[in-house]
Design a protein around this nucleic acid. Structure first.
Lengths: 398, 398
DNA sequence: AGAAATAAGTCTAATGTCTAGACTAAACAG
DNA sequence: CTGTTTAGTCTAGACATTAGACTTATTTCT
């Protein structure tokens, strides 16, 4: 009913163990073969062979002997290679294009953001600009001795069956993956496209404040409000790709109608436009960035309307989050994107409501944190998915 | 960070392929070895060997030759054995104890329900009664030539670290699994305890209206309201086991305070007690069963208060479900337990709201269905988990 | 300084499952 | 009765893993 069954034959076994060893190296970073044998349950002989294969793929490097325990022969620590394998992450948002290149160790090797307004623009033009940026990053990577093995793209919309619907960009059923794939050089790992909240959640998991948390909800507040849901370290993906639409959870049954067809949606209360309007920041004064700066300035000055608007947004978020917490039972809630920058004012009202709602039932209350990667979490997450694919299937770079 | 890594060695490979073959047999029921080889990607030789092993475990039977294609030698169809392996499902609820025994084919071999009030009763007494019922079922199974290989229990509460909190039964941190395990004969598959909504969802998936659906939300309305979430055929389990608490999603931010600490929870509007009260069914007139019958009678008579009460419950459910649908993006919503019996009156208000809320964004709207297993879905699901464990690890019954 | 202890990593033989492809078995068509 | 088709079995060979002996490198004890 779900995936086609895959038998395990002898070389599947080797592939799986190769991935197992590599992932364990990634997790424990400098680690000796002997310890890897303990950790994975494989024998020392097998581990030696697998590590040799991974060195051949240039995914790991084996350093000189270093004493770890008190006595006995010192082990040779094995680590992820900081090159040449690298992943490219791309992001399209309402007001910028972004790209970054990460090596296997998670180090940011290149990073670039282009401010530009993509909201009115034709999807093909936007994607052409993104492809140009991507090609430039690949060229610069090659010059730096890096090999970009794959690309992933973060988009603020719903991805279903290779078509992208992104109302906030004015995209309707755009075959983004196909268009980009044609405009980029062939790579060993196929190009993937995913929702910005999903990739932001993964970015936090690998490189941000989600690192320790097992299960969490990542809120991506840009123009709309999306949620990336991570359960036990795994991204939750629905069958149709439109999970996590927190912006259209009902927070006030008697509230105003929403473009989604419902009424009283969170986006009507806590979306960027709604907050700016309620705070009295004129909606003609320029880019969303400058308008947000204006809002932050007023908040810092203690402006009454601004504080009230953000408090209302916080209470709306709280209602939606109490529902999400009761449904999903996460350890942590991470405020990302623009919400991270409002975290100082948002966290108090949200925290109070989340602790009250259902707190008595569960005993434990999720922790609220603000992303420190800010706008970078989705691009980082995108590049990270490429690296995760390499870790899951090391032979793909052969 | 999640599960300890398990290496694949040579006999792991065999176990995995054995499970693969068995699961494929379960899915396609009468199927020849040749077709199994095609389906699984294994060779005919291997399949023959695996089927022989499964026959040795008495999990499958191989029938006489039957012509399937037009010409050529007819194949010998292999099917799941309707015995001796069987699973026992148990359930505790506010007003009954239930048990059922299923064989591998999913056939109900024994089934029993004891009406009794477990709400005030001491947890140990209730569990002792349940154990007595279970022992009786095991004895009768043995007499019928069945071997009960494992037991699973459905409880209306949160199961965390082997302790059960079930406010509606008055249970606080009861070590139910340990208590029951001591009172039952040793079985080859360890006893498991799970939430009633989770097991109900699985019951629907295997034996009920969830059979075709890939992703769905199963609503279990008994005294409280819980949800079992199935994504791509897999049950969604949170790290702490308290996911699916739909009863405490906020449906009216200005609503009355709830025992959970929050305000305006769904349970305050659509819980059994709330509906009966709003419908004016006196809350001293006897068992919940008889009170529910009274409500159904009044609804059938077109009683105004009753209709209004159920409509209000439907609208509350709709708000919570719109949130859940936006967050989880299911194909189907299944009304179970008492809600199934009110489905005729509940579906219209819910359906309208779910179609409106977010419908324009997604294009596709989840289908609403009422469980036909009714009260039986959780017990069936419990017994089913035992059988699923056998299918996942055939050697466990060796 | 030399011997014993300890631990890392490598080598060799054995194990067990799978595959490939030849082979036998059972049906039907002409 | 022969040729064709498909099901299932048999045999030899491939290959990743294991167990355990062995080598190498370092510390500790005498």
């Amino acid at each position: 009913m779900t995936a086609p069954p895959r038998p395990t034959h002898i070389d599947t076994m080797r592939e799986r163990n190769l991935a197992l060893v590599l992932q364990e190296i990634a997790r424990r970073q400098p680690v000796t073969r002997a310890r890897l044998a303990e950790l994975t349950g494989l024998t020392k002989t097998t581990v030696t062979g697998q590590v040799a294969a991974l060195e051949g793929l240039r995914l790991v490097t084996s350093g000189g002997p270093v004493r770890e325990g008190a006595r006995g022969r010192p082990g040779a620590p094995v680590s992820l290679a900081p090159g040449p394998v690298a992943g490219l992450g791309l992001e399209v948002n309402g007001h910028y294009l972004a790209a970054c290149v990460l090596d296997l160790t998670g180090g940011v090797r290149l990073s670039e953001t282009y401010a530009c307004d993509n909201r009115g623009r034709d999807a093909r033009d936007t994607l052409a600009a993104l492809a140009a940026l991507a090609r430039q990053m690949i060229t610069r990577s090659t010059e730096a001795g890096l090999a970009v093995v794959g690309t992933a793209v973060a988009l603020p919309g719903v991805i279903a069956e290779d078509r992208v619907n992104a109302p906030n960009l004015g995209w309707d059923s755009v075959p983004a993956a196909a268009l980009l794939d044609d405009a980029l050089p062939v790579q060993t790992i196929g190009l993937t496209v995913d929702n910005e909240a999903n990739l932001g959640a993964l970015g936090e998991r690998w490189y941000g404040v989600g690192r320790g948390a097992g299960s969490y909800i990542y809120l991506s507040g840009e123009i709309g409000i999306g949620a990336g849901i991570v359960v036990d370290g795994e991204l939750f993906r629905s069958a149709h790709g439109s999970a996590g639409e927190l912006g259209h959870v009902v927070v006030d049954p008697d509230g105003p109608a929403c473009r989604c067809g419902g009424a009283g949606c969170l986006e009507q209360v806590a979306g960027l436009d709604a907050v700016l309007r309620a705070a009295g920041v004129s909606d003609t004064s320029g880019t969303s960035e400058s308008r947000l700066s204006e809002l932050l300035r007023r908040l810092a000055d203690g402006d009454h309307d601004a504080l009230r608007a953000v408090d209302a947004a916080g209470r709306g978020l709280a209602v939606a989050l109490v529902g999400a917490v009761n449904l999903l039972d996460p350890d942590t809630i991470i405020l990302g994107g623009l919400l991270a920058r409002l975290a100082f004012w948002l966290i108090p009202p949200i925290e109070g409501a989340v602790i009250r709602g259902g707190g008595k039932l569960r005993g434990r209350t999720p922790v609220l944190r603000a992303s420190t990667l800010e706008a970078g979490s989705a691009v980082r997450g995108a590049a990270g998915t490429v690296l995760a694919a390499v870790l899951a299937d090391p032979l793909s770079v052969a």
